[in-house]
Write a protein that binds this DNA or RNA. Structure first.
Length: 257
DNA sequence: ATGGTCGTTGCACGA
């Protein structure tokens, strides 16, 4: 299985780029974030024309997550699993794809350390852990992929001194990411790459992409049953180039040969 | 240098 995650920053604005990328790269599964589409506005037919089934959890002009798959798509759960405090926004969708439980997640940004949205972000991550506990076992094949809005460690930002007092790098955020991982997940990118300075997001402003000013905040977390079978991972920074790119690049993980 | 660029919508705000 080739699985990818991509925050597209509006699927309406990005559909031509997404169609081109799906046709070119042909992943088996793509987790999409920030569709910014109402539930019934997802381009199901355009995606189907490329050979993919779709499951979308949309909200309107903000947020929105989806999973598209050509290896099966069943047991869809929108929002957190029943029994967990439901989120008011469309930030998580879960489905079963070829025996792997896949979640596409768009973790709240947090905005600032003293903002209510930061507390919401930490709460959201705690509920993500509860969602995993409620829906799977650590010995299952589980993937949680998406935009976490958290840089796991200092290698994952272009200049840590620029982030003092900021979100995405604070210890509580990194700790709650670790709490989610303690379900039995690992950051699969670090199984293959130790280097600092490999990023998945670059601000549109100020030529950040060309200056190498980015962060690695888009992650593919996987249980051991998946991670041990994985063979490579890349961030497709070519998708951040050219006409009307998203500000995020897709992250890919190959499972098996 | 507290800017800058996109996306949404609607004449600002979120990222």
């Amino acid at each position: 299985m080739l699985i990818a995650t991509w925050n597209v920053n509006s699927l309406k604005a990005r559909l031509p780029r997404v169609e081109e990328w799906l046709a070119d790269v042909a992943p088996d599964v793509l987790c999409i974030q920030e569709t910014k589409l109402a539930q019934d506005k997802f381009p199901t037919e355009a995606i189907s024309a490329l050979g993919y089934e779709s499951a979308h959890f949309g909200q309107g002009q903000w947020n929105g997550v989806a999973i598209v798959s050509k290896v099966g798509l069943s047991n869809v759960i929108t929002n957190f699993a029943s029994g967990i405090e439901q989120d008011g926004e469309a930030r998580i969708i879960t489905a079963l794809c070829d025996g792997v439980q896949v979640s596409s997640v768009y973790v709240p940004n947090g905005r600032a350390l003293d903002h209510d949205h930061y507390t919401y972000k930490l709460s959201w991550m705690s509920r993500l852990r509860a969602h995993l506990d409620a829906t799977a076992k650590k010995t299952d094949k589980v993937i949680v992929a998406g935009d976490f809005n958290i840089a796991p460690d200092d290698r994952d930002v272009w200049d840590v001194s620029q982030f003092e007092g900021s979100t995405h790098v604070s210890q509580p955020e990194r700790d709650v990411l670790e709490t989610v991982c303690e379900f039995g997940l690992e950051d699969t990118f670090r199984r293959f790459h130790d280097d600092a300075g490999i990023f998945s997001w670059w601000d549109y402003r100020g030529g950040s992409f060309h200056k190498g000013h980015g962060m690695r905040i888009d992650l593919i977390l996987a249980t051991r049953a998946v991670a041990e079978e994985s063979t490579w991972t890349i961030i497709d920074r070519n998708a951040r180039k050219g006409e009307q790119p998203s500000d995020h690049a897709p992250v890919l993980l190959k499972i098996g040969k």
